[in-house]
Amino acid sequence: MNLILVAVISLGVIGLISAVVLFVASKKFAVYEDPRIGEVAEVLPQANCGGCGYPGCSGFAEACVKTGSLEGKLCPVGGQPVMARVAAILGLESTATEPKVAVVRCNGSCEHRPHVTSYDGAHSCAIMNSTYGGETGCTFGCLGCGDCVDACQFNAIHMNPETGLPEVDENACTACGACAKACPRHIIEIRPKGKNNRRVYVSCVNKDKGAVTRKACSVGCIGCGKCVKVCPFEAITLENNLAYIDPAKCKSCRKCEQECPQGAILAINFPPRKPKTEATAETVKETASTAEA
């Protein structure tokens, strides 16, 4: 009986002392933090991907509250709905931004871009890029070691073993940009998803002269400039033997896709063309192949 009493009293005393110390400490060393930071952080997805440009979700929340403006701030993972909730907490207007997605700008699969050497080093794009031009004749295209796959936190990008190229799962992709950063050749671009997920882009980053590109890859951009001429909206620019479609100006008319002799321009998620136009596409391809031969 006595023993139990001693135990109870001693534990009680220890607890009491601790409580007093904690109480004093919490009052004395208290740091004021804007409660809204916590509130904002709570609505964020907590992926801590860094896609917003701040160190993690709490960093983003702090920046939102402290600057008092949402100008130029976007949580790529949560997208518009999350930004609207953040705006509501802070009493701000949420600025509308377009949803984006990662696109792989290389279409040089094994059949289009034959291998000329075989790389036997460490399995890393960064290492291969810094030492060798890759296994194919193209020194700009995808290396195929999957640094982008390792970088993705959302399991949204995978290597296709048949083509040897990464493929983006549009629904899982949050456009955080980790893959684009990881790619040593800057092949991956974060582009607007486009209306109804439809978009047109040049699937190549090769800046070699046309003849050199053509030799290395059958679907590379040769910088012929046909797409620039055919575009009615002046959305396409040609620089260093490479065409680029400005997503802000592009109206998805797909004229350039038909015009491209190399098939380097891809149009994604469009319904199949009417038979007539399809025939034209085929003739274009045919002329391209005869030109090559």
Partner: peptide, 12 residues
């Protein structure tokens, strides 16, 4: 192990 491959990357 391809140690030097990674060390070169790190050194660069």
């Amino acid at each position: 192990r391809p140690m030097l491959d990674y060390i070169r990357l790190g050194k660069g």
